[in-house]
Design a protein around this nucleic acid. Sequence first.
DNA 1: GAATAGATTGTCT
DNA 2: GACAATCTATTCT
Length: 213
Amino acid sequence: MESRSITPLPHSFYARSVLAVARDVIGKTLVRNHPLGELRARIVEAEAYRGPEDRAAHSYGGRRTERTEAMFGPAGHAYIFLLYGMHWHLNLVTGEYDAPQAVLIRAVEPLIGIEKMAALRGVDAHDAQGRAHSTLTNGPGKLCQALGIDSSLYAHDLTRSPLLLTDGPKLARGQLGRSERIGIDYAGSWARKPWRFYERENRFVSGPRRLRS
DNA sequence: GAATAGATTGTCT
DNA sequence: GACAATCTATTCT
C-alpha cells in the first residue's frame, strides 16, 4: 500500500550500457514488499558483468542455459542465482535484448524494516553503538537473505512489486568509488577491469578497507 | 585486523 | 565429479 506512491525506475534506465547502469544505480533505493512487511535499502555497491566477451560473466562465450536465460532477456528484470549452494545473488539485467549483461548488487544500506531484515538474517539488528549492524547487508549473499530474495523472484520485472527500484538522493560529489571486481580471480585480465562501483566510506560496502575508501 | 578452513548444492563438464 | 560473482567461525598476531 505504501508502494502506491512509489515511482519505479523505468525500463529505459536499464536499457543502456551495463557500465552506465552499474555506476548510476549507486544511491538508488531498492523496495521489497515482503510478507513480513515493506523493506527498503539504498544500493551502495554494484558490479558490471558484460557478456558474452567478459570471462567473469556467467554468459561468457554466449553460454545460454536454464540458469543464465534471464541475462539474455529484456532489461529491467532480475537475474538471480545461487552460489556455493547457499547464497542467493541479485542482478539487474541491462542493455539490449539478447545482450547477456547484468549488474550484480553487492551491498545495500538498510533504510526501512531493519528489525525485519535482522530477523530474516538471524542476527542482531544493532551493533554495540546502537547503529544498524553493517553485517546485515554488506555483501551480495547477505543482502539477499536480509531482503528475502531467492529464486522465486527469478526474471521478475523490477518495475513492479514485490521488488522494484526507485530513485534516491543524488550521490554527493566525489563519493563515487571505482575499482576492480571482487572474487573473480579466475577471469584472467578481465578480473582487473574497473567495473565495480561503490559509495566511498559507506560502512555497508563490502570488501577490504582499500576497496571501501 | 588478517588468514584460514569448512559449509553445502545447483550447474556444467 | 569439480566448481562457484560467499559467509562464518576460529585462530592467530
